[in-house]
Simulated scan of single mutants.
Amino acid sequence: MPCRFCFRIDPALTPFIPHGINVEPTSTRGQNLFRNLFMQRFPFILSSLLICFVLCSPLQAAVEVSWQGKPPVLIDEVYQQQGVSYLAADEVFRSLGLKAHWDSVKHLYSLQLSSGKASFYPGGRFLYLNGRSVAMEHPARFIDEKLRIPESFLTGVLPQLTQRLLVYRNLDPVRYAADSKEEAGLDRLFSLLLRQKRLDSHGPALSAVAIDPGHGGADPGVIALDGSKEKELNLQLAEEVKRRLRMQLGIPVYLTRDGDYLVEQHERFATTTRSGADLYLVIHSQISPSAEKQGIMLFIRQRSVSEGNQGERDESLQLAGALRESLMQDGWHVDPVRAAPLLPLGQGNLPTVLMEVGFLSNRQDLQTLHDPTEQARLAKGIETGLVEYAKRKKQQESLR
């Protein structure tokens, strides 16, 4: 016979009933007991439902884009990745009346402009137009099976290429303001983190080096026609440079990643900061619409004298110059050093150089980056350039 204190409840509510309470129909006292228990647990139930609603509701974001003087077009699918807003390339260009084409074989996206055909690769940091390359602060990337471009492409790159005024308006000002503050905070963080150590005139010319093998994990970087992934080649070369520096100089060398996993940009900078490195070398490779384009390119931060960073730029320029000189002496083709607003270069006064070590679209460069012997030769040239830079710097310090 059931206990007169027992009662029946909806099974959906059983998680909120203390363990040991039985459930059967019946007395008024049992119903009162249930009512009291439910009222005690009601605030918890309500708060749980509210939290679930907030977490499960999709975050909405939208922007408007148009050429100046044209009606704005609403784009309501905006993704946030590492503090950057990304929009579907096809949707954006269609709304602007531009013809675009995705070549799934070459893994190349092309955009028809009045000045010619502009092309870029997912993960690549350059856009190509009429034989010249234009640096992109953030690369295009695939997100949810669509190729998406960063908003900096619309606010900077596209107006520059078309010589037309483009109106871009973010319709989510609260989130946009928060993102802007976050990015500004990261900028200040980078400028504080990537600081150059004070040189000890009695110590070694080079005491520690930080190397960043670009991309990794879900971010493959650019992909060659044979399927070679930039992330793998970057890491192989970085590991070879590390091996040579430790073998020849016996100094610690810190990699921002030592395997195939994704590392956020701020984590790469954090690794460099903790290491107390004398310099920061960022290793990437690239791809071009022209299979003839080959060789190594060196980039430093883009800063002006008016911003008060000329000393920092000079240090990075000296480092890039020493690398270029060493590599050219070993027979490598190296373009003149360029300054570009590339995110992996970070901020601060730590001597930093981004190396594009070859074109995966060029057969010879691709073979070189796959060949262990050629990798070792390239790593040796990099090692020599780093050591030469450190020696020159120490000589300069001793004369002050």
Rank of each mutant, 00 (worst) to 15 (best):
V23G: 02
L193Q: 12
A88V: 14
L193I: 02
V353L: 04
Q265S: 05
E182W: 15
A62S: 12
S66E: 02
Q310D: 10
P43L: 01
D172E: 02
S285L: 07
M1E: 00
K106E: 14
G83Y: 05
V23Y: 04
K242Q: 15
K394Y: 06
F93N: 04
E24Y: 03
Q396D: 09
L298M: 07
I287Y: 09
V222A: 02
L369Q: 02
A205I: 09
R4M: 05
D258E: 06
N362H: 15
A376H: 05
Q395V: 08
R244K: 14
F359D: 03
Y168V: 00
S115R: 15
L194W: 05
M355S: 07
S47E: 00
L189T: 10
G131M: 12
Y79R: 15
D219T: 02
E264N: 07
D258F: 09
F34I: 08
L55N: 02
D103C: 08
G185P: 00
Y168K: 04
P58Q: 03
S290A: 13
D76S: 09
E292K: 11
L98I: 14
T384R: 14
R41Q: 10
I283Q: 10
Y389T: 08
T26F: 05
E292Y: 08
P336E: 06
P220E: 02
Y128H: 15
Q60L: 04
L343A: 15
L298P: 04
P139W: 10
K117D: 05
P15R: 06
V282M: 07
K394S: 10
F5D: 08
K70M: 11
I287H: 14
R303M: 11
E239D: 12
I251S: 12
M1I: 00
V241G: 06
E77L: 04
S228P: 08
F359T: 05
L342T: 06
L235G: 01
R274E: 08
L366E: 01
E183I: 11
Q367Y: 03
V23A: 04
A140G: 05
F153W: 15
E292S: 09
F269M: 06
E356I: 05
N234A: 08
Q82S: 08
L171F: 04
R198K: 12
Q112D: 13
E91W: 06
V174K: 04
N309H: 14
I211D: 02
D76W: 04
S95H: 10
L98A: 07
K99N: 13
R338Y: 11
K393E: 10
P11V: 03
T26P: 01
S361G: 09
T373N: 01
L74P: 01
A320P: 06
P11D: 02
G321P: 03
S228D: 07
L127W: 14
L98Q: 07
I17D: 00
A218D: 00
H101E: 11
L59C: 08
C3Y: 08
E64I: 03
P11L: 03
R301H: 11
R125G: 14
I45C: 00
V84E: 01
D76R: 11
E183W: 12
I75H: 11
A205Y: 14
H333Y: 12
P289V: 04
G385E: 01
T373K: 02
P150Y: 13
K106H: 14
L49W: 02
S104P: 07
L186M: 05
R169M: 01
F34C: 05
A277N: 06
L317H: 13
S316A: 09
N362G: 10
P18E: 00
I17Y: 05
S115H: 14
L55E: 02
